[in-house]
Simulated assay, not measured.
Amino acid sequence: MNSPNLAITQETVFVVDDDEAVRDSLRWLLEANGYRVQCFAGAEQFLEAWQPHQHPGQIACLILDVRMPGMSGLELQERLIADDALLPIIFVTGHGDVPMAVSTMKKGAMDFIEKPFDEAELRKLVERMLDRARSESSSVQQQRATSERLSKLTAREHQVLERIIAGRLNKQIADDLGISIKTVEAHRANIMEKLNVNTVADLLRLALSSKPPVP
């Protein structure tokens, strides 16, 4: 049975395969091991339902058939790459598709499995994909939080921060910007408060994790 939409509230394994028997088999194997599974008969159907911007921070992975009518698995991978999708992929391959599967890995797919499936191997690969998805989701959330804090800075504070990152002293920053040292100190204090950091080391770590734009 195919899912009409993706109300993602927990870790999910998506299965896209035009073969109903394969979809049912994967669903049975994965659900028996405690995974939430959503199946689609084609790439187009998956794309219609998959809206990651509505589910920020989602933890999910994709098991994708290489050969399908209409949009192939390879074309769907290209589409997801173009959309900067953080969705780890395992390709399902038949005999003779291994060279093609290797090519998909060079484009970012994590692995591929051959039919018929080995349950233990499949379970290990899915858990590895979800581990990667968790890590990427955590990184994205941290970057988003950092960007939100940096957006609170004024244009002048961004200029001061850029020079702090470059290792310039207060006097040098004052000379660079044509302002007094006391004004630089005031800007530094405001930057520390807005970014909620207590030390210069913390400030540098935060700023370098999401380099602020130059005003």
Rank of each mutant, 00 (worst) to 15 (best):
residue 84 D to M: 12
residue 212 P to Q: 01
residue 48 E to C: 11
residue 32 A to S: 13
residue 49 A to N: 06
residue 62 L to N: 00
residue 206 L to Q: 02
residue 84 D to I: 02
residue 184 V to K: 03
residue 159 Q to C: 11
residue 171 K to W: 08
residue 70 G to T: 00
residue 122 L to A: 09
residue 180 S to M: 08
residue 37 V to I: 03
residue 129 M to L: 09
residue 167 G to N: 02
residue 114 E to N: 10
residue 176 D to T: 01
residue 208 L to P: 00
residue 4 P to C: 03
residue 12 T to L: 03
residue 83 D to T: 06
residue 59 I to K: 02
residue 61 C to S: 05
residue 137 S to H: 06
residue 43 A to K: 04
residue 165 I to Q: 07
residue 173 I to C: 10
residue 56 P to H: 11
residue 1 M to E: 09
residue 103 S to R: 15
residue 35 Y to E: 13
residue 61 C to D: 05
residue 189 A to K: 15
residue 6 L to C: 08
residue 194 K to W: 04
residue 196 N to Q: 15
residue 111 D to M: 05
residue 143 Q to G: 04
residue 77 Q to K: 08
residue 12 T to N: 00
residue 195 L to N: 02
residue 207 A to V: 07
residue 42 G to K: 03
residue 178 G to L: 07
residue 74 L to S: 10
residue 128 R to Q: 11
residue 147 S to M: 12
residue 144 R to D: 08
residue 162 E to V: 08
residue 201 A to C: 03
residue 44 E to Q: 14
residue 168 R to W: 08
residue 161 L to N: 00
residue 29 L to D: 06
residue 113 I to S: 05
residue 17 D to V: 00
residue 195 L to M: 06
residue 118 D to T: 07
residue 149 R to V: 06
residue 160 V to S: 02
residue 141 Q to L: 15
residue 91 F to C: 00
residue 178 G to W: 09
residue 5 N to T: 13
residue 29 L to M: 14
residue 177 L to Y: 01
residue 44 E to V: 11
residue 199 T to N: 05
residue 185 E to W: 05
residue 22 V to I: 15
residue 162 E to C: 12
residue 142 Q to G: 04
residue 197 V to R: 02
residue 63 I to G: 03
residue 183 T to N: 12
residue 111 D to L: 06
residue 101 A to E: 05
residue 10 Q to Y: 03
residue 136 E to L: 15
residue 61 C to K: 04
residue 127 E to D: 15
residue 77 Q to E: 10
residue 28 W to C: 07
residue 122 L to R: 07
residue 106 K to M: 09
residue 13 V to T: 02
residue 87 L to G: 04
residue 213 P to C: 10
residue 53 H to M: 10
residue 63 I to D: 01
residue 51 Q to L: 14
residue 149 R to Y: 03
residue 128 R to P: 03
residue 179 I to Q: 07
residue 203 L to F: 03
residue 176 D to Q: 03
residue 59 I to S: 00
residue 6 L to H: 13
residue 163 R to S: 13
residue 209 S to D: 10
residue 27 R to P: 00
residue 76 L to R: 04
residue 193 E to M: 12
residue 197 V to D: 00
residue 183 T to C: 06
residue 141 Q to C: 05
residue 46 F to R: 07
residue 211 K to N: 11
residue 5 N to E: 13
residue 95 H to Q: 09
residue 197 V to Q: 01
residue 42 G to V: 01
residue 6 L to Q: 10
residue 38 Q to G: 03
residue 160 V to F: 03
residue 131 D to F: 14
residue 94 G to W: 09
residue 24 D to R: 14
residue 40 F to T: 05
residue 4 P to D: 04
residue 45 Q to G: 04
residue 168 R to V: 01
residue 144 R to H: 10
residue 20 E to C: 06
residue 199 T to M: 07
residue 28 W to F: 11
residue 53 H to Q: 15
residue 7 A to G: 09
residue 73 G to C: 09
residue 99 P to H: 01
residue 38 Q to L: 14
residue 28 W to S: 11
residue 144 R to S: 12
residue 75 E to H: 05
residue 200 V to G: 02
residue 149 R to F: 03
residue 30 L to K: 00
residue 28 W to A: 09
residue 145 A to L: 13
residue 73 G to P: 01
residue 94 G to R: 10
residue 73 G to H: 09
residue 156 R to L: 12
residue 97 D to G: 08
residue 54 Q to S: 13
residue 68 M to R: 05
residue 192 M to F: 13
residue 202 D to H: 11
